[in-house]
Computed example of a mutant assay.
Amino acid sequence: MQARERMAAKRAASTPEEAERQRILARERSATRRALLTPEEAQQQRATIREINAVRRATLTQEEVEQQRTLARERSATRRALLTPEETQQQRATIREINAARRAALTPKEIEQQRSLAVDRSMAKRATATPIEAEEQRVLARERTATRRAVRVSEEAKQQQTVAYKTTRLQKTVKQKQTVMKRKPNQDAKVDWPKLVDMDCKVNCLKNFIQHMPMDSLTESVCGICNIRRYKRELRHVPLSKIPSIELLKIHPDLHNIIPKIQEINSFNSN
């Protein structure tokens, strides 16, 4: 008891930096001891430590348990604050591996018991927590879920970017191959260009020009039935005697009022 009281007095009188140094030294000593132990001895020590901790927890009151929890949280917070990002990442990885190993070693009954205990603990915390603490816990849970989602989204985005990059590279390579295959036959073919125009082509062009450019071929006339102006070479001359049902070719009555002297023209044509 006296030794414990002395140690407690020393811890109370020491500064936070000295306390942290003592903890680091104690960890190093325990690490060296564990390294020298055999697996069986290490397992025995763990079992004894668990029993001692269980006995201590059983003898503690509710207030002392809460004080120990708060102290443990403060210690973990100070440790996390002093760690670098790389060290925090390593610690998280090691904790995940330890938890995975523990879960793999558990039986289905033990897993169910742990789940029920976790549910009971969360229910007890929620029941004893004040509205402010409950709101803080909700905010922390939302932030954790948001960070997890952000990590997942970033990983998915990276995967999509890699897939898109690979697809674009493949498309470019395919297009390059197609262009190369198209260029090869054109390169093999021998084309004599530019070259002089053949004399036959010149003569044919001149004949077409002479046939389509004289006054006889360019004269225009109006059709007597549809009243459309066309080239004279495209019209047909049909005598009146050969037109069937010529009585239908009459002027509309409204044109008599529009066109002056149309009656005189009609009478002249009839005579």
Results as ranks from 00 to 15, higher is better:
residue 125 K to N: 05
residue 37 L to F: 07
residue 168 T to F: 05
residue 86 E to F: 11
residue 23 R to W: 15
residue 94 T to K: 06
residue 110 E to W: 03
residue 64 E to L: 05
residue 52 I to G: 08
residue 123 M to P: 01
residue 50 R to P: 01
residue 57 R to S: 14
residue 79 R to L: 09
residue 81 A to H: 10
residue 107 T to L: 02
residue 50 R to S: 08
residue 158 K to M: 06
residue 27 R to L: 11
residue 104 A to N: 02
residue 140 L to P: 07
residue 99 N to Q: 14
residue 79 R to Y: 07
residue 81 A to D: 12
residue 166 K to W: 12
residue 68 Q to D: 13
residue 118 A to Y: 07
residue 111 I to W: 00
residue 131 P to Q: 02
residue 80 R to Q: 12
residue 78 T to F: 00
residue 80 R to A: 14
residue 94 T to S: 13
residue 157 A to T: 09
residue 74 E to R: 04
residue 66 E to V: 08
residue 34 R to T: 05
residue 104 A to F: 02
residue 158 K to N: 08
residue 85 P to L: 07
residue 108 P to W: 01
residue 97 E to G: 12
residue 59 T to H: 06
residue 72 A to R: 11
residue 169 R to S: 05
residue 141 A to F: 04
residue 130 T to V: 06
residue 60 L to W: 03
residue 85 P to N: 07
residue 72 A to S: 14
residue 107 T to K: 01
residue 24 I to P: 03
residue 111 I to G: 00
residue 133 E to G: 01
residue 162 T to Y: 01
residue 39 P to N: 10
residue 142 R to W: 07
residue 85 P to K: 07
residue 46 R to S: 11
residue 61 T to W: 00
residue 42 A to Y: 03
residue 122 S to H: 02
residue 145 T to I: 10
residue 28 E to D: 05
residue 108 P to M: 00
residue 53 N to T: 13
residue 81 A to V: 14
